[in-house]
């Protein structure tokens, strides 16, 4: 919920940002307040996801014998596809920023919507994955693997969903003429958040899905 407030602030920046302030030349460091806010927030997010990933890694190894574990449910080819989708969305995000910075609004709209769509595909894939896992017998309450896996990937999914909302918000603001080349920084800030979420997925994909799975220890 914290990111809601922060992002809402970023969205408000779009709305009200004065052209001459977007480059932040009025601050004592020469850095824009909004961008610094997002970076400081992302620094904090590192410890949030760190705690979740650590919890998952710890619990993966503490899973009692005979319980449904990672190697029983994971579908690596499918998740790889999702990972490519999210990776691609990072590219389209940066292309959207590049487009609006040079005033190419047509491409900005295309790439923004593409990014949001790719994000939505990722989320759809995650819902599908959760459904399959559930049908295979892994519920949220089934065991510590289920609890920690769904919590970690669920937190990430909520972050992606929130990113999609922000992308749609900047798209709508642009359609209303309230977000143009001079406010490209707002797109950049949303982009920072989006890339961060992608980075977290890079970690989760490797640590959760690809690392060799334990043959049920303990």
């Amino acid at each position: 919920m914290t990111e809601t407030a922060v992002a809402s602030e970023a969205a408000a920046a779009t709305d009200h940002g004065h052209a001459h302030q977007s480059s932040g030349h009025d601050t004592s460091t020469g850095i824009s307040n909004n961008k610094l806010m997002m970076w400081v927030f992302l620094g904090s997010e590192c410890l949030l996801f760190g705690a979740l990933i650590s919890t998952y890694m710890l619990y993966k190894e503490r899973l009692p014998d005979g319980e449904l574990g990672p190697s029983d449910v994971f579908d690596i080819p499918f998740t790889s596809l999702s990972s490519f989708v999210l990776l691609l969305s990072s590219l389209t995000m940066v292309l959207a920023l590049s487009a609006i910075s040079r005033g190419d609004y047509r491409n900005f709209r295309i790439w923004t919507l593409t990014t949001a769509t790719l994000g939505a595909i990722f989320i759809a894939g995650q819902i599908y994955e959760f459904t399959v896992f559930y049908e295979e017998g892994l519920g949220y309450t089934t065991n510590i693997f289920g609890s920690s896996f769904y919590t970690l990937t669920g937190f990430h999914g909520v972050h992606v969903s929130f990113g999609i909302i922000m992308l749609l918000a900047i798209y709508i603001m642009h359609r209303q003429g309230r977000l143009n080349q001079d406010k490209a920084e707002t797109v950049e800030i949303v982009g920072l958040y989006w890339h961060f979420v992608d980075i977290v997925w890079i970690l989760i994909f490797t640590v959760v899905y690809l690392f060799p799975q334990p043959e049920s220890v303990l």
């Binding site: 919890t55 710890l58 619990y59 009692p64 319980e67 309450t141 065991n143 510590i144 303990l218």
Partner: peptide, 13 residues
Amino acid sequence: FDANFFNVAEGGS
């Protein structure tokens, strides 16, 4: 939501 994070019986820590 009945998760198992601190449920010792399930291996929670």
